[in-house]
Design a protein around this nucleic acid. Sequence first.
DNA 1: CCAAAAGTGTTATTTATACACCCATGC
DNA 2: GCATGGGTGTATAAATAACACTTTTGG
Lengths: 235, 235
Amino acid sequence: MSKYSKQTRFLVAIDCIIFGFDGENLRLLLIHRGMEPEKNKWSLMGGFVQPDESTDDAAARILKQLTGMEGVYMEQLRAFGDPKRDPIERVISLGYSALVDIHKYKEQLSDEFQPEWFLLKDMPDLIFDHQEMVQAALKNLRYKAALHPILFELLPEKFTLPQLQSLYTGVYDAEFDKRNFSRKVLSTGLLIRQKEKDKENSKKGAFYYILDKSKYKDKFQSFLNFVPNPDNFLF
Amino acid sequence: MSKYSKQTRFLVAIDCIIFGFDGENLRLLLIHRGMEPEKNKWSLMGGFVQPDESTDDAAARILKQLTGMEGVYMEQLRAFGDPKRDPIERVISLGYSALVDIHKYKEQLSDEFQPEWFLLKDMPDLIFDHQEMVQAALKNLRYKAALHPILFELLPEKFTLPQLQSLYTGVYDAEFDKRNFSRKVLSTGLLIRQKEKDKENSKKGAFYYILDKSKYKDKFQSFLNFVPNPDNFLF
DNA sequence: CCAAAAGTGTTATTTATACACCCATGC
DNA sequence: GCATGGGTGTATAAATAACACTTTTGG
C-alpha cells in the first residue's frame, strides 16, 4: 500500500519526569544533556521514539537506560507540541511521569549522564520547556495522589506511617494532622502492619507496614480522598 | 544549526473525539473517512499536524474544519502510539476530546464528510483504534465530570435543571435523585436562575438557568463532587 | 379534573475536622 | 528521668443519602 506521501513527518521524543522520595523530600532525577544544543545543561532524561516501538515502550526503554529499572509506575502526561520548543528542529515530545523507589535506583548504571536527584525546591534551570513539563507532572501528581493511592509507588516495600506522612507532607508542601492521617490511611484497608519496627528514626520505633497488593490493585482507581480539601493544594 | 539527522521522523495526527448532548442523550460526532484505507468507513475527525502549527492549534483547526466552531472546550487526552495502529504507515495520533453545544453546530459546513451524531450506545465500528480513543475519552469525561463542572460545556446558554440532570443521567447511564441533585448543583453557586421558564418540555414549565461565568472560571478546577460515589460509575 | 413534570424539606447516617494525652525507648 | 517521636480517642460539625408530598397547568 502507498503511504501518506504528501505529509510532513516529525521527530517524536519522550521526556521522563522521574520522581523519587528520599525519606524526607520529594526529588526529581535530572541529567546532564549529552547532545547539542545546550549540551551539559540540566535536562529531563529523554530520547527519540524509534521506528518499531510504541511510545510506551520507548518511555520504558528510556527510563531503563537511565535508572536500570523496569516495571516501574509510569504514565503518559501529554504531548508538548509547540513548534518552537526545540530550537534545532521541531520535536514533538511526549512527557511521561514515573514514580520510582529511589532506593532501588542504581547509581552506577548511568555514569554517562551524570544524573542527580534534585529537591523540587532547588531545581536548576532546565533546557527547552522541561520546566513546564516538570510543573505539569507535579500538578498531575498532586491531583492524582489526592484521590488515589499512588504515592506508595515511591516507597520501599516496608515503610512506616511517619514516613508515609512525611511523603504526603513533601508532595503537598503542607502539614497534616497525624491522627486524622493515620485513621484515613488505615481505613482504606490497604496496609498490613508488620511485627517489626523501624528503630532507626526514633527510640520508640515505628511499625512497618506493607501494601496489601491485591487490595491495592482493586482500589488503585477508587476515590479515596487522602488529602483533605484538595482544592487548597492544587491550584 | 544542524538537525537531529539520524533520527526517524513520524507522521503525527490529531483525532477529535467530539461530544454533544441533544437534550436527551450524549452523542458523538463521526465522519465518513475521506481517504484510503478504509475510505467511507466511520471514523473520528482527524488530520495531520502541519509544520508550523502547534498540536493544540492543529486540533482547533481540525475541529473547526468539521464543525465550523471556534473557542470550544477541548483538551488533549493522550498520544496513541502503537506502531501498527494505522496499517498504511506509522502514525502517532494525539486524541483531543471536545465538548460542544450541539445546537451551535453547523450541519451544512461539512457536507464533504457526511458527519453524523451517533448515540454512544449505538456506535458503528470505527477504523483503526478509534474505538479505543472513544472509550478513553468517555472514561476521562466521566472522571472529570464527577469532580468538575465540565458538562456545562455541552449545554446551551440557557438550560433547566431537568435538562442538566438528564445530561448527567446520560453521561453516567445512571439515575440521580432530583432533590439531592438540585441541592448539590445549586449549592455550587454557579447557576443564576432566570425569570423565564422553558414551557416546551412540561406544562408547569421549568426555570431557565445560566452560568455565572466568573464563578465558573474560578471554580472550574475545584472539586465539587457532582456525582455521588463516583467509584460506582467509573470502573 | 387529572395527568405529567417541577419543585421543595426533613431526618438519619456517614464522614471530616479539631484537638491532647499517654507510651516506649535511648541516652 | 527526661527528651523524642510514636501511637491512639472523642466530641463537634459538615456532608451525604434516603425518602414523599405539593404545585402548576395544558388538555
